[in-house]
Simulated scan of single mutants.
Amino acid sequence: MARMHTRRRGTSGSDKPAADEPPEWSDVDAEKIESRVVELAEQGHDPSQIGLKLRDEGVTGTPIPDVKLATGKKVTEILEENDAKSDLPEDLHNLMERAIRLREHVEANPQDAQNKRALQNTESKVRRLVSYYRGTEIDPDFAYSYDAAVELLEE
């Protein structure tokens, strides 16, 4: 399948190994994992960063290769249950941050045509994601603009 804003084909990614249960060397209690997930979220980590920290550091020194296999829930589901979920979905938040950085760069460097195009592509992706999440994750009347993105991310 081709990439969104180029004519080139995408590179293939790796697949997760098929597993029905966590490995026996990772025998951490599900409640401890959930409390660690909430603790990391309160420290300001995103769900993807939480997964990486649990994989690398683990809980009480034992790594957690897959939170969903160990607990039966995704990281975002655990955060929803404990009211530690962020206001914006992580992918939309990251794209908005990127669009803000690009806009500030293009305003400071108006001759940079390559980054003008990158800004257009990024804002296009943001608008597409906003229409996807509208009504479920974000307000039904939300429309993306630079000022709205700055206002949302300052909170």
Results as ranks from 00 to 15, higher is better:
S14R: 15
D83W: 11
E42I: 08
T71S: 09
L153A: 03
L152I: 04
H45V: 02
A113D: 01
E34T: 04
K16V: 14
R7K: 07
D91L: 00
K53V: 06
E77L: 09
R7I: 02
R103P: 04
I78H: 09
E154N: 01
E77V: 10
N121V: 04
T11R: 12
I78Y: 09
T122D: 01
L153C: 06
G10M: 03
D141M: 09
G51Y: 09
P63Q: 13
D91G: 00
P65C: 15
E151L: 08
R9K: 02
D139W: 01
N94G: 01
L92A: 02
R98P: 03
R128P: 00
P140I: 03
P89R: 06
T60A: 09
T122V: 04
A149T: 09
I64P: 13
P63G: 14
T122K: 01
K116G: 04
E39S: 13
G13E: 04
N94T: 01
R128L: 00
D83G: 13
P63T: 14
E90V: 01
K74C: 07
R36S: 07
V28E: 07
P47K: 02
T71E: 09
N121K: 09
G51K: 08
Q49P: 04
S48N: 08
T136C: 03
P140D: 04
M4L: 03
E97Y: 05
V67S: 11
E90Y: 08
R8Y: 02
N82L: 01
K32S: 11
A143G: 01
I50H: 04
A84E: 12
K116C: 01
E154D: 00
D46W: 07
I33V: 13
Q43S: 14
E123A: 02
E80Q: 14
A99H: 07
D20K: 15
F142M: 12
Q49C: 04
K125V: 03
L129I: 00
K32D: 11
P63K: 14
W25R: 12
A108D: 14
T60G: 08
P47H: 04
G10N: 03
D27F: 14
D147M: 07
S14T: 13
V126Y: 07
L129A: 00
L119G: 03
L88H: 07
N94I: 02
V28R: 10
P65F: 12
